[in-house]
Every structure is written in C-alpha cells, then in structure tokens.
Amino acid sequence: MKIDLKSTYKTFSGFVGRSFAQINRSRRARAFFLLAAFLPGLVVILLFIVAPVHTAKTHLCKSEEPRPPKAAETAVDSSAQNSAQPFIQRIDSLRGEKSYYQALLETARRDTFSLSLNLRDSLFCLYIKGVPVRQCRIAGFQHSRLFDCIRSHRLLYKTNSTPFSLQRDFATIRKIPIKVIHAPKDTIEAERMAQKIKLEKPDVYCRLYFSANLIIDISQTTSPSLAGTLKRLVYQLRCSFYALTERIKALAHLRTPAHPLWIKIRLSEEDAKATYRALHGDIRLALLI
C-alpha cells in the first residue's frame, strides 16, 4: 500500500489549521480551550509529582533527630569537622550494616525462604532458614535518587532494620511450570506420549513489590529473544497497569500516591529464574545500600 505523504500532510495541517482558527476566533474560545487543556495536566502534576515529593520531604523532616545544642557546635572548628568526616562516614556505613544484619536475623528466625540484597558487595542472596543457598552476583544496578536523599538519614536505618515483605510480583516466566498429562489408556499410547524432554530457556524479567514502597526490578543480562521481547512487553504493561491501579486506589482512599523506592538489578538468566521460582509464601528481604 502506498502512502501519499503529501495528501496526509495536507489533511493533518488542514485539521490543525482549522482547529486553531476555531480557537483563535475569540478570547473566550481561547480561555475555554486552555482551561480544558491544562486542567487534567495540572491535576496530574499536583497528584503524581508535587504531592509524592512533598510527602517524602515532610516524612523525612518529621523523622529528623533534634540537633545537638548550638554551644557544642561552636566549640568545634572546621579543621576538627574535617578530621571527623572519615569517622562519620564509617559510622554511617556501620549503622547500615547493623540494620542489615538485624533484618537478616529477623528473617532467619521466622521465615523458611528469604532474600537479601547487598548493593555494597553486589550480591543478591536466597536464604533458607538463614542459610545462604544461592548467592547471585549482580552484573549491574540502578536505584532511585530518593535513596541518595535518605542514604545517611536515620529513617533508612530504621526502615532497613525490619525486613521488607513481598506483596506482589510479576514476571515473564511462570512460578511453577506445571504440565498436565492425562493417563494413557494402554502401553502403546504411553509409548506415543513419551516425548523428548525440552529444556526451557526462558527470558527472565521480574518485578517484586515489597512493603514500604520498595520495588526490585530483576532483568537478565543477555538481550531477549523475539518471543521474550513480546513477553516482556506484556509484562511491562501489566506492571504499569498495576502501578496505575495502585495510584488510583491510593487516591480513592484519600492517600497521596507515594514515590517508589526502586532498585533495578541485572542477574544471569539462571540466577534470576532460580531465585524467582523459589519465592513462595511470605517472603521477606533484608537490604544493604
């Protein structure tokens, strides 16, 4: 089929021209148009951008510790502050580690299966009763900038010292790949049914939604096949739809939709598949960032 670009352009420009001519005919028309055009955008900006940022900011400010008395600060000169800086950083790091181990022990005490994400050592681990049964090397990761804001904030240690519990997950693979077989009537049918076993090589992408608005996005290191790309597209649409419904639910309950604390990690297909398929029941995660 040949597309006539010239006529398409003419039709489109004609439509735009007519629309703008209609809008430009009076001040009132312009006012009506602009009001209707900017109102939905304004609502989106307020509800999905301004409100979540403001909520996060106020949440952080509320959890601030009272500052030490001014007199103590004035007594310390800038050189002392500089020499104290490495200690302060080390203390920050140790506090993070402490809360991570606290969460890890908490999961070991109660859960059969648990996860840990250690971004400092680039490790994603699966535990059974506190025993690391699979340690996956993270090939690469990205995280929300909100983590940078709260990296050394006490809120992060407070949140991290209790494990995050898994609430929802989406993936491009099935969690239990069950194959249903009907019993053969005789030995001939049984022989006919005995097929060659196909080893599955799926493309693995999964997203784990945890409590406290933590989202862990796992993707494989290699590029997907064509079928994998299509599955990934469907999976991304499902994730987007879920995120949208959650926002709408939050608005319906008069809550501000919060900004998620997302972490994207890349693992090998085998690691991603094995870890995802091991997640059954109440799974909790310890995080070290």
Binding site: I45, P52, E64, E73, I88, L146, C149, H259, P260
Partner: peptide
C-alpha cells in the same frame, strides 16, 4: 505527563537533599 511523572519526581529528588543526617547528632569530638 503521567508517563514522565516518575522521571520528573526523580529529578526533583536529585535536587532535594535531606539536610539532616543521622551523623549530625553525633558529637564532633574525635
């Protein structure tokens, strides 16, 4: 806007920094 909202929020968070750190409450005495 909805599609780009998360990116805009990320940008906003990169501009905003939590001024109060845990270590602020630590004594500066070595």
């Amino acid at each position: 806007l909805c599609a780009f909202a998360p990116h805009v929020r990320e940008l906003a968070f990169s501009l905003f920094s939590a001024k109060q750190r845990t270590t602020d409450s630590l004594p500066a005495d070595i």
